[in-house]
Computed example of a mutant assay.
Amino acid sequence: MISMREAAYRFDDAVFERSVQVIRRCGAVELIEGFARDVRGPGGRPRSGRRFTVMAVLVVALSIVRVGRTPSIAEILRMIGTLTPAQLVEVGMDPDSALPQGGDEGVEPGEGDQALKASSSARHGGGGYAAFHGWLTRMLEPLDPGADLQAKRVTNGEHRRQLASRSEEAQQASETAERRLLDVVNALVAGSVDQQCPGQL
């Protein structure tokens, strides 16, 4: 039997609302979703199971940082599960399909991604860690300059050989992804500044 575990903390209203304000103002959600649409193209199979949003991910990640913790994928998923119905609506998620309080079953607060992934395999509708990780990876892949490289640790020399062996098409794709990433990062930084021209009235 899978037991429920509460998250170790909750976001207070001030932290959450401040994060919502910053993410809405910066426009990063629209950038990420737009890049994903451009890469994916028209059509495709509709998403099934729990529907997460980029807004939820960014707001929760920023809130985690603001309370002095580390926003891993596992922690973001866990903390989405602590949001109230009203907060879920604010980040574009359906409260009726949200995670139970605590973020996931059978995982102690502070446990890593592997434990959360293992416990999530028993979740209904494929809405646990594996589904969340897969969806988020697909959404952020257009921002990854190294998406064509092997996802494993290599020596510096091997890394240089991989870069040198890229085709012209792969190199252009990497440069495009890097520009997208910089656009998103710059938007997030700009959105976090309350008064961008303090010398002006």
Rank of each mutant, 00 (worst) to 15 (best):
V20E: 06
V89R: 14
I2L: 14
A122M: 12
L77F: 04
L181M: 13
Q195L: 12
N186M: 11
E17A: 15
A173E: 15
F132E: 08
R47I: 10
S19A: 15
E178V: 00
R69L: 11
D104I: 12
A56S: 11
D104P: 00
R10Y: 06
A7S: 13
V65G: 05
R180V: 06
K152I: 10
T155N: 03
A36V: 05
D96M: 08
Q196C: 02
V57R: 10
Q171K: 13
F132S: 02
A36D: 03
S120P: 08
P145Y: 04
R25Y: 01
Q87I: 10
G199N: 12
G191N: 03
L163I: 13
R161E: 15
Q172Y: 02
L136T: 02
Q101M: 05
Q196M: 06
A56N: 06
G110H: 04
R166V: 09
H133P: 01
G127T: 12
A8V: 03
T176K: 11
G125N: 11
A61S: 14
G92Q: 07
Q196R: 11
I64W: 01
G102D: 08
A115C: 02
Q162R: 14
D13W: 03
D183Y: 00
T155M: 07
D38I: 08
I80S: 00
A147N: 08
P85H: 02
G128F: 08
F16T: 10
A86S: 10
L163T: 03
R66W: 05
D38S: 14
E169P: 00
R51N: 04
T137Q: 09
E111G: 01
R18A: 15
R161F: 07
L83T: 05
A187I: 02
R47E: 14
A98Q: 02
R138S: 15
P46D: 07
G43Y: 07
A177R: 07
R47N: 05
F11R: 01
V57E: 10
E33P: 01
P85E: 09
S119V: 10
E141W: 00
D183Q: 15
A118K: 12
V184W: 03
E6M: 09
G112N: 13
G125D: 13
A187G: 07
R123M: 12
S167G: 14
E108S: 10
L182E: 13
A170Q: 15
R25D: 14
V91G: 06
A98E: 04
R50D: 05
A173K: 11
P71G: 04
V184K: 04
L136Y: 10
L140D: 04
R40T: 14
G127V: 00
L143A: 08
G191S: 03
R123L: 12
P42F: 11
P100V: 12
V15F: 05
E105M: 14
D94G: 00
G92V: 06
N156C: 11
R25E: 13
S48Q: 14
S97D: 12
F35P: 04
T137F: 14
T82W: 06
R18F: 02
